[in-house]
Simulated assay, not measured.
Amino acid sequence: MEKHVLQYTSLLSDAFTGRYSAAHIRDDDWRIVGGSNAPEGAYPYQISLRYLGSHNCGGSILDESTILTAAHCVIGFNAQYITIVVGSNRLSSGGEVHAVAETRYHPEYNSWLIKNDVALVKLKKPLAFGDRIQPIQIESDFVDGAVDCVLSGWGRLNYPGEIPDQLQHINLKTLTTKECVERLNDDSVDDLQVCTLTYRGEGACKGDSGGPLVVNKQIGIVSFGYPCAQGYPDVYTRVSAYKGWINENRY
């Protein structure tokens, strides 16, 4: 079965045309399947990472100048054409558009195994925090299985399908690493990652890549899965495993 990292369109991510090796793609283009419209202002840390003006990935606000996302969301993309939109639940309207100064991804990112899939984006001008624009804290502790969490994003509602205009959210539950390996039949998944699975028909999809998985604090970054919500776990970069790198490299 083909795996995919979860970005937006083939024009942007080349997810189906070989950017990540056509023989080995872990879905780069998710939207939340089985979720619902998020209340206005419920996720003030959520951002839309756009390339040439189109939504490509999700991400989260760490501080006034730093955005957290997935490495596969920035590798191969010229920072000059990346913008970050904050403060709106809609892709089509509202919010603030911020230019990007530079991007920085983990030096050991492996596009074949989709490992160390974490990156930081530096904004040219700092954010002004308010009711709809707020940072999120990142988790320091290891989060094991059977923990309730929430995913938000603008990934596709089904696969193939349309990108929603309205931000989506869904309640999910974490798996242990052992459970994730067994359900995916993929022993490359390890404790540097965290997985979720509730029911078939619920989960991440293309366009959710880079977005935040949260249990009060952010525990995961959407990384890869089998598109979409087909009863297999979704895999996220485990934020606590990279907290040192994040804090050393944040802007």
Rank of each mutant, 00 (worst) to 15 (best):
K3A: 11
V5S: 13
V5A: 12
V5I: 11
L6E: 04
L6G: 03
Q7N: 15
Q7T: 15
Y8A: 12
S10F: 14
S13A: 06
S13Y: 05
S13G: 06
D14G: 13
F16D: 10
G18R: 11
G18Y: 10
R19P: 01
Y20S: 01
S21L: 08
A22M: 11
A22L: 10
H24F: 06
R26A: 09
R26D: 09
D29E: 06
D29A: 10
D29W: 05
D29P: 05
W30H: 13
V33C: 00
G34V: 01
S36H: 09
N37P: 14
E40N: 12
G41L: 11
A42Q: 06
A42N: 06
Q46V: 15
Q46G: 15
I47W: 00
S48R: 02
L49S: 01
L49C: 03
R50F: 08
R50E: 12
R50M: 09
G53F: 07
H55V: 07
N56L: 10
G58V: 10
G58I: 08
G59P: 10
G59T: 14
I61L: 01
I61T: 02
L62Q: 04
S65T: 10
S65C: 05
S65D: 05
T66A: 00
V74H: 02
I75Y: 12
A79Q: 13
Q80F: 09
I82D: 00
V86F: 02
S88L: 03
N89A: 03
R90C: 14
R90S: 14
S92G: 13
S93W: 10
E96Q: 05
A99H: 15
V100G: 03
E102S: 11
E102M: 10
R104A: 08
R104Y: 12
H106P: 04
E108S: 15
S111D: 12
I114S: 07
K115D: 03
N116A: 03
N116F: 03
L120A: 04
V121Y: 00
P126N: 05
A128S: 10
F129G: 02
G130M: 11
G130I: 12
R132F: 13
Q137A: 12
I138N: 05
E139P: 02
D141C: 08
G145I: 14
A146F: 13
V147N: 09
D148Y: 11
D148E: 14
C149E: 09
W154N: 04
G155A: 00
R156D: 11
R156T: 11
N158F: 09
N158L: 12
I163N: 13
P164W: 05
Q166E: 06
Q166S: 03
L167P: 04
N171R: 08
N171C: 06
K173V: 08
K178T: 15
K178C: 08
L184S: 08
L184A: 13
N185V: 09
D186M: 00
D187A: 15
D187C: 15
V189E: 06
D191T: 13
Q193W: 07
V194A: 06
C195E: 04
L197E: 03
G201K: 04
C205Y: 03
G207W: 15
D208T: 07
S209A: 08
G210L: 00
G210Y: 01
V214A: 05
N216M: 09
K217M: 14
Q218N: 15
I221A: 01
S223L: 02
S223I: 02
F224R: 04
G225F: 14
G231M: 03
Y232E: 13
P233Q: 10
T237M: 03
R238F: 14
A241K: 06
K243H: 02
I246D: 04
N247C: 01
Y251D: 04
